Amino acid sequence: MSGSHRPSRWWLLSVAAASIATVGLGLVAPVQAAPTLPAPPLDPGAMVAQVGPAVVNIDTQMNYQSAVGAGTGIVLDPSGVVLTNNHVIAGATGLTAVSVGNGQSYDVDVLGFDRSHDVAVLQLRGASGLPAANIGTSSRVAVGDPVVAMGNSGGHGGTPTAVPGRVVALNQTVSAADELTGTTETLNNMIKADTPIRPGDSGGPMVNAAGQVIGMNTAASDNYKFAQPGGEGYAIPIDQAMAIAGQIRAGISSSTVHIGETAFMGVGVVDDNGGARVATVLADTPAAGTGIAKDDVITSINGRPVNSATDLTDVLDQCHPGDVVTLTWRSPANGEHSATVTLVPGPVG
Rank of each mutant, 00 (worst) to 15 (best):
S2D: 09
S2P: 02
H5C: 04
P7F: 03
W10E: 09
W11H: 09
S14Y: 11
A16S: 11
A17R: 04
T22C: 09
G24N: 10
L27H: 13
A29D: 08
V31W: 14
L37I: 14
L37M: 15
P38Y: 08
P40C: 06
M47W: 01
M47K: 02
V48S: 10
A49G: 02
A49W: 08
V51T: 07
N57A: 08
A67C: 01
G73E: 01
G73I: 00
V75F: 02
L83C: 05
L83D: 02
N85E: 02
A92T: 01
T93I: 06
A97E: 04
G101W: 06
G101K: 10
G103D: 00
Q104C: 05
S105A: 14
D107V: 00
D109N: 12
D114S: 12
R115I: 14
H117C: 06
Q123H: 04
G126P: 12
S128I: 03
N134C: 06
T137I: 06
T137A: 09
S139W: 11
S139Q: 15
A142I: 02
A142P: 05
D145F: 09
N152P: 06
G158W: 10
V168A: 10
A169S: 14
S175N: 09
D178M: 03
T183R: 01
T184F: 00
L187Q: 04
N189W: 09
I191V: 08
G200I: 03
G204L: 03
P205F: 11
M206L: 15
M206G: 11
A210R: 15
G215E: 06
M216S: 07
A227T: 02
P237D: 14
P237I: 10
D239S: 07
M242E: 12
G246V: 02
Q247F: 11
V267T: 13
V270I: 15
D271A: 01
D272P: 01
N273D: 12
V281N: 11
G289L: 06
G289M: 01
G291P: 04
D296H: 10
I298L: 11
N302Q: 05
G303S: 14
P305F: 08
S308I: 14
A309H: 07
A309T: 09
A309Q: 07
D314R: 05
P321C: 10
V324R: 15
V325G: 03
W329P: 03
A333N: 13
N334Q: 14
V341W: 14
V341L: 14
V344N: 07
P345C: 04
G349L: 12
